[in-house]
């Protein structure tokens, strides 16, 4: 089953009077449970593609289909609900809430979703990502790697079908980065979650099932 499909995806940003075309017609397909790495040079359109697939932004032209649902006609409210129920995000800069403890960061999407036993499940997720004894710490009391693990646990909170990671290891040392990508791999294999990870680190790319390479807003390579 195809989890993610883009058709002629274009995105143009207006930076003052200058128009920058970040994506120039991207067509990709990602199967359910696939772990895909998106690579390319800086400015090739990787993050833009991820943002469009994750419904954080709207394309200038073209479509994003998630589980065969055309998302171009969805209202903002419907897109928010789709993000809550089906999509988990892991950002380069973690984007955790400083005012919430690790466990509360993980609980928040579950409380919004109305899940019962949110605290218990958050504890389990933190244990899964290796933060069993750090659940009561605030993000500022955790290392970069630990914060990213909290972010992964939060992304998995509502059992999403799609996990989007935008340079999740960009701020981590190589050892921690490798262990995180291994974690992604386990999640993909064990939970059947489709994962799209933006990275330009060659060593991490090799752990993915497939690589999509972008250049100047176009897909130039898509394969094992």
């Amino acid at each position: 089953m195809i989890a993610v499909k883009t058709q002629g995806l274009e995105k143009t940003y207006e930076l003052g009077k200058v128009k920058v075309q970040a994506l120039k017609g991207v067509d990709i397909e990602v199967n359910k449970g696939e772990f895909v790495a998106i690579t390319g040079a800086s400015g090739s359109g990787k993050t833009t593609l991820l943002n469009l697939i994750g419904l954080l932004d709207r394309p200038t032209r073209g479509k994003v289909l998630l589980w065969d649902v055309d998302t171009s006609h969805l209202t903002e409210s419907e897109r928010a609900r789709m993000r809550l129920r089906g999509i988990g995000f892991v950002f380069q800069f973690f984007n955790l809430f400083d005012e919430l403890r690790a466990i509360e960061n993980v609980m928040l999407p579950m409380v919004l979703f109305g899940k019962k036993d949110a605290r218990k499940r958050a504890r389990e997720l933190l244990s899964t990502v290796g933060l069993k004894n750090l659940e009561l710490r605030y993000p500022s009391e955790l290392s970069g790697g630990e914060q990213q693990r909290v972010a992964i646990a939060r992304a998995l909170a509502n059992e999403p079908d799609l996990l989007l990671a935008d340079e999740p290891t960009g701020n981590l040392d190589s050892g921690t980065a490798l262990s995180l990508v291994e974690l992604f791999r386990e999640i993909s294999q064990n939970l059947g979650v489709t994962i799209l990870m933006v990275t330009h680190e060659i060593e991490l790319v090799s752990r993915a099932d497939r690589v999509i390479k972008l250049k100047d807003g176009l897909v130039v390579e898509s394969g094992q």
């Binding site: 954080l56 928010a80 993000r83 129920r85 995000f89 984007n95």
Partner: peptide, 16 residues
């Protein structure tokens, strides 16, 4: 503003 964006990214609607 940034926190509002994160809240929206994880599924909060504008009204929430």
């Amino acid at each position: 503003k940034r926190k509002i964006a994160i809240l929206r990214a994880i599924g909060f609607r504008s009204e929430d």
